[in-house]
Design a protein around this nucleic acid. Structure first.
Lengths: 254, 254
DNA sequence: GCACAAACGATCAATAATAATCACATAGAT
DNA sequence: ATCTATGTGATTATTATTGATCGTTTGTGC
């Protein structure tokens, strides 16, 4: 059972995420009757946190980035959430964190909301979107050209920006992870960006669900030896994990 | 048995950890009756250490959201739209455009959607938000630290990013515009960013509605002589305009 | 412009939570 | 030792929140 304040917050968040929501949807989302939802909407409108419409309400958040694909379409979402949960455990107060673009790192951004006193730098609009309202986190973004497909900034300006900073932990995502071919990604610009990320981080943490194993994409980012930590879901074969451990990578399965 | 202050501290800690707590839970947690918990909650709320709700309390952090910016609160919106409309007329195919953060430049971003084959670079999330879905526009962003108040990126990283590019037109917004004191803005970091913007643009276009005239803010950005073009609404006094023309600024009234 | 369905606001009863009250216990002062 | 001030828990009266109902309004398709 939610308190009134929690419920209202949830409504606002729902609207910010989906831009709109019907009374019915919100009723389901919050588990209260439609009457109560209407009462909440009325009050929230007075607080200028949303705009009521017939049938529901819309967000009046002027900045609202939508993912190219929604959470629901995200394969292995639960695995990614578990990976993200483990990843944030590595963070210590005062750390400077670098967040790569990707669906797994996006889950990290969501978890980060609950942490205070850290600095986050990212090249992902989606991560930025999650963190932009957190006053307790100093959020920076790399410059760069927007790649519409991934909603990430890439290119020479990105690398140039990254050159200015050094971070305690870089959380990297990847498309392909192979013992021989290392880490790879389909886009050349993104590969270069990731390489730079590896270069400026004290600890490099690679996040990958088991579907990435054995995949090799067009552009090589780095060898697996350049990784310090690997967090994977437990769908990974033991032989694969063993190999990583042999070369000194700290592997965590979740 | 706990002293009162210990108990209160424990309540606050519990809430920060779990972000919520019912009176019942807190009663168990502290080992006192619900009456006492309520008394404590009342006092702690007065000390602004938590937020009470029916049934318990929530941590302030979990409920701390504020009304986002909206067009309707934007004063002189129509003037700004007219200014923006005029501004985009200056743009030619193939141009590289720099968009400052601000409500007027945001209107330009909205107009830009209809133009093809240009490059846009901005330090404003809001502008980025408008342009992110335009596949016919190459959108770049400067790096930098996010300033939550203005949703703009500022700081050394921003200037560093801007250093990498040269643009045909920079559209600048300002808080203050005064004949003697020039262009000024309340925030020091933003002032530095604007200065850099002026430095990397072939043409500098200043956008200002008449409410900015005579205003002087904390940080000086530049003298009015550094401006090439000025677009204002017709609420500006003729003497003011005349002075600009005398020093060679191309003034357009809309 | 009319009819229809959906959504809305006002109202009410049920329930749960709160505030007010009182009695008691404890600690410190006299 | 007694008195008083304070904090606490139990009890009770009051209030807040909620879901349901129903007449009214609004939007939509024809």
């Amino acid at each position: 059972m939610l308190f009134e304040e929690e419920r209202k917050k949830r409504i606002v968040e729902f609207l910010e995420k989906h831009s709109r929501g019907s009374v019915q949807e919100l009723s389901q989302e919050t588990g209260v009757s439609e009457s109560t939802v209407r009462r909440d909407l009325k009050e929230l409108e007075e607080e200028k946190l949303l705009k009521r419409t017939h049938g529901g309400a819309v967000s009046l958040q002027s900045v609202n980035f939508e993912a190219p694909y929604s959470d629901k379409e995200d394969r292995f979402l639960e695995e990614k959430q578990r990976i993200a949960y483990k990843a944030v455990e590595m963070i210590q107060e005062g750390d400077a964190i670098l967040l790569d673009a990707g669906t797994t790192t996006l889950q990290i951004a969501k978890e980060l909301k609950n942490i205070s006193n850290i600095k986050v730098i990212t090249n992902s609009i989606m991560a930025l979107n999650e963190l932009k309202d957190c006053r307790n986190i100093e959020v920076s973004i790399t410059g760069g050209i927007l790649r519409p497909d991934t909603m990430a900034f890439v290119g020479p300006m990105t690398e140039h920006s990254l050159d200015m900073v050094r971070v305690d932990i870089a959380f990297l995502a990847t498309n392909g992870l192979d013992l021989q071919e290392g880490i790879s990604t389909p886009n050349m610009l993104e590969a270069a960006t990731k390489r730079k990320m590896i270069a400026i981080a004290k600890k490099v943490v690679l996040l990958a669900d088991h579907s990435k194993i054995g995949q090799v994409s067009f552009c090589k980012v780095a060898d697996i030896t350049e990784i310090d930590y690997l967090i994977m879901d437990s769908g990974a074969p033991a032989s694969f994990i063993q190999k990583f451990k042999e070369i000194g990578v700290d592997v965590t399965l979740v």
